[in-house]
């Protein structure tokens, strides 16, 4: 990996199942067994009722584009991508997460709020991270 490559997340015991699932091509999020609500990001207890009784569910991978910015001053490792969108997507299950929008030029005309998206995955060092691409396009894998 180049010295100033894109950041690679360092999983913790609580987040390891999320990254392990991503490596298998699955988007997993947590759901509370007490109040039933799904949430993101992975953590040791439910943010709605503080219960520690949690399960991992496999998300459909379908999402919509909630909001984004197009960054013209690239972070280290993103020089070749600029300008690139930093988006927040809304999963079909409800929770939202940050992602890049891949497989499409990141222009305001192309990126329309509420457009349908589909999860895809990107290898980042020895970790795999979820990304999103417009629904109906050929996903990376």
């Amino acid at each position: 990996m180049p010295a100033r490559g894109k950041p690679t997340p360092v999983p913790t015991p609580e987040t390891r199942p999320y990254f392990d699932a991503a490596a298998r091509g699955e988007l997993k999020i947590q759901r509370c067994l007490d109040c039933g609500r799904p949430f993101f990001y992975p953590r040791p207890c439910c943010p709605f009722c503080a219960s520690a009784a949690l399960e991992w569910i496999t998300a459909s991978g379908r999402a919509t584009l909630y909001s984004y910015t197009i960054n013209h001053r690239p972070a280290p490792g993103f020089e070749q991508d600029a300008p690139y969108a930093i988006a927040v997507v809304q999963l079909e299950e409800g929770p939202r997460m940050m992602a890049n929008i891949v497989g499409i030029d990141n222009t305001p005309d192309n990126l329309v709020l509420d457009m349908d998206l589909q999860v895809t995955f990107e290898q980042r060092g020895d970790v795999t991270i979820p990304q999103f691409t417009p629904a109906g396009t050929e996903a990376a894998r």
Binding site: P9, P74, F78, A87, M97, M98, A99
Partner: peptide
Amino acid sequence: PNAQFEAPYGVL
């Protein structure tokens, strides 16, 4: 959480 779930997407 910021480093795991936002930094990988190129925030600066």
